[in-house]
Write a protein that binds this DNA or RNA. Sequence first.
DNA 1: CTGGATCCTCGATGATACTG
DNA 2: CAGTATCATCGAGGATCCAG
Lengths: 116, 116
Amino acid sequence: MFDVKPDPYVAMCPSREIIAVIGDKWSLLVVPLLLKGPQRNTELMRQIEGISQKMLTQTLKRLERYNLVDRHDYGEVPPRVDYRLSPLGHSLATVISTLDNWVIDNYEKLSVHSCA
Amino acid sequence: MFDVKPDPYVAMCPSREIIAVIGDKWSLLVVPLLLKGPQRNTELMRQIEGISQKMLTQTLKRLERYNLVDRHDYGEVPPRVDYRLSPLGHSLATVISTLDNWVIDNYEKLSVHSCA
DNA sequence: CTGGATCCTCGATGATACTG
DNA sequence: CAGTATCATCGAGGATCCAG
C-alpha cells in the first residue's frame, strides 16, 4: 500500500546489493546478449571471451534468483538448457544496453588507446 | 576517420575495463550524487554510508582518469577541494541514474525483503 | 553438454595511523 | 579537511577434475 522506496545510499539497504549484482562486470555483458533470444551455456561462453564456466554459472544463477533470467531445462539427454530474459529482465536489459552503448559510443573520449 | 567500434565481448578490449569501472559498486553511487553539483570529499563520505576514505578517493581518481570527473582544488588552507562532473561525466550520470532508478522502482519485483 | 565441487592464489577492500 | 601509506584479511575468481 504505502511503498517505502529503498535507498542504496544506506549501507544495509538490500538495494545496494542489487545494484552491485546488476553492475557486475559479467552481468553487464550477459544480460544484453540475452536480448538476442534464449541462449545456451556454450553459446554464452563462446560469445563472452574470457569468462570462466564458474563465473557464467554463478552470474546466471544470481540473475535467476532476482527474477531477471529464466532457466529453461528441456530435460533431455544429453542435457539441453537455455536461459532467457524474464519480462523484468528484458526491461533491465534495455537499460543496460544503453549503458554499454554509451561506453562504446564515447570510447574515444574515455581513452586514448585504440581497440582492434 | 574510420572509427573501429570497441567490443567489450573481446577479452583484451579496453572497453571491457571501462565497463567494469563504470559498473563498479561505488561508481554507481558516486556519479549520480555529483548531479546535485560539486561535492567535497567529506560531503560524499557522509552521503554514501559505509564507503571508506580509501575507496572514495580511489573511485574519484579513476573517474577523473577517464575524464568523467573534474577535481577542483581551491588551493586554500585548510584544504578545500571539490569534485564535479565533466560534460562527458554528466552525460554518463543520466544513464547511471536511469539504472539506479530502475532498481529502486522495481525493487519489489526483485526481492521480497523490505527496506527500512 | 551442463554444471557441481575443490583447491589455491592474488588482488580488492577495510582499518589504522600519519602528513601537509 | 584532504589525502597517502601501510598492513592484514577475506573473498572473488580461475583452473581443474568429476558427474549425470
